[in-house]
């Protein structure tokens, strides 16, 4: 018998208490674990499961049960927010995640500001929120993690990304206005997730990497708006996980300013070293998603043990999983951690 339920273990870890062993999770959203192997095994399929809360919660449960990840992670994509704010979506297929068909606005100056709560009250968000509610009621011991697409990625999913990236320098005022608007929308959505039982909120913001933005813009926009969301969610007593993609070498001082309870990073980062450099900041990660897809179970198992020996606070995939990742590689990862 485990001393802690998965939810207790995650919550204690996120509040800095010591536990028997680190949790192993996959928060959903960008880091979606609804892989083809699980879906074909259980018959709860994407893209269907994006659309109704029953199917979404069924699939989230399948993922939990089959992969060994100690959480529910929903939604399964990064398009909920942008769709609500006006962009058109292609829902993809069993193997391929949904994507933005077209960003609705050509420039930050053309954005139509919809009333607050537009994301939170959208039908896509309702599906997610309802699924969080169903899962957390039915399985109170398993943490349901609500995943958000970060403010920069969401903004660059409603405004043409190339124009948007340029306008972060050229049209700072208008850019801030748009990202602030998106941020407020994300906050009310996150609050509804929290009210409906989300044990944690996870924010991934792939367009906001240090490599794409550079340290100054990362600081001015990504850090500021990620913190704004984080603070609002923390006020409700719900912990926030922030994931930063790519190589974080040039944004280390900026990472230190993040208010999230734990920082999740990509495989290229030496997590143990980063922790040291960032005053022992709680860290999550970071088994390579390429290893998970192309490696064999044995190597995955060894790598998992290696990570475990480095006192990483939460074990998780380093970034977004490929949907063709073999299930037995994932179970090799999770069982290596659970075995302690």
């Amino acid at each position: 018998m485990d001393v802690f339920s998965p939810k207790e273990r995650l919550q204690k870890t996120l509040s800095g208490e010591t536990v028997d062993r680190p949790p192993v999770i996959c928060p959903g959203g960008m880091m979606n674990a609804a892989i083809v192997d699980v879906m074909t095994k259980t018959g709860h399929l994407l893209p269907d499961a994006h659309h109704t809360s029953d199917k979404m919660s069924d699939l989230a449960y399948d993922v939990y049960e089959n992969t060994g990840f100690e959480n529910f992670g929903i939604p399964f994509c990064m398009t909920v927010e942008a769709e609500a704010l006006g962009s058109s979506i292609n829902f993809g297929s069993l193997e391929c995640e949904p994507k933005i068909q077209k960003e609705v606005f050509p420039s930050v100056k053309d954005v139509t500001f919809l009333p607050d709560g537009t994301i939170a009250n959208s039908s896509r968000a309702e599906t997610v929120i309802q699924a969080i509610y169903l899962l957390s009621e039915k399985y109170p011991e398993i943490p349901a993690v609500g995943s958000l697409t970060g403010p920069i990625s969401t903004a660059a999913s409603i405004v043409d990304p190339m124009i948007f990236l340029k306008q972060l320098r050229r049209e700072r005022e208008a850019a801030h206005k748009v990202i602030d608007y998106v941020t407020e929308q994300l906050i009310s959505y996150a609050k509804l997730m929290a009210d409906n039982g989300a044990a944690a909120i996870s924010i991934a913001d792939p367009t906001a990497t240090g490599e794409i933005l550079g340290p100054k813009i990362f600081d001015e926009y990504a850090v500021y708006y990620l913190n704004k969301i984080t603070d609002s969610v923390h006020e409700l007593g719900v912990p926030v996980i922030v994931h930063i993609c790519g190589d974080v070498r040039m944004v280390k001082p900026q990472l230190q300013k993040l208010h999230s309870k734990v920082l999740s990073v990509d495989a290229i980062v030496d997590l143990a070293m980063l922790k040291k450099e960032l005053d022992n900041m709680p860290a999550m990660g970071n088994i390579s998603t390429y290893l998970l897809e192309f490696g064999n179970a044995d190597t995955v198992f060894k790598q998992a043990k290696h990570l475990l020996s480095k006192n990483i606070d939460i074990l998780a995939p380093a970034c977004g999983l490929s949907t063709s990742t073999p299930l037995n590689n994932i179970t090799a990862f999770t069982s290596a951690i659970k075995e302690g």
Binding site: L165, K166, R169, R170, E211, I212, L213, G214, I217, M250
Partner: peptide, 14 residues
């Protein structure tokens, strides 16, 4: 060299 990032490169292109 990591001196410029995507926004800078796009502005140079403009």
């Amino acid at each position: 060299d990591g001196e410029y990032f995507v926004p800078e490169l796009l502005m140079c292109a403009d």
